[in-house]
């Protein structure tokens, strides 16, 4: 493995550990999850509606995905 690739992996590992390290000071205790557990606090509250929107915008715009995989699988684009 070349030095540049080794360096790249080290930088990625450093970034990841920094992010995860920074995250340790955030968050809640398990008994404080009442609000977060609510259905309307989930990242995707309605998967069918999210899928329909992804499908509409995939077929009308040049971008797709981001939240998850692109809304492909059709001949509409």
């Amino acid at each position: 493995m070349s030095n540049s690739i080794t360096l790249r992996y080290r930088v990625m590992a450093l970034c990841l550990s920094t992010v995860l390290g920074g995250c340790t000071s955030l968050g809640v205790e398990p008994w404080e999850r009442d609000e977060l557990a609510r259905e309307d606090m989930q990242l995707v509250t309605d998967p069918v509606e999210a899928g329909l929107d992804d499908h509409i915008y995939f077929s009308k715009e040049a971008s797709s995905g981001g939240r998850g995989f692109g809304g492909g699988g059709c001949g509409c684009n």
Partner: peptide, 22 residues
């Protein structure tokens, strides 16, 4: 071929964030 790398973080009792690279 699609690849998604995601980070989800609870900030506090009322705030949840997500960051994805695809």
């Amino acid at each position: 071929t699609d690849l998604v790398l995601g980070l989800t973080q609870v900030i506090n009792r009322d705030l949840l964030v997500q960051l994805n690279y695809s």
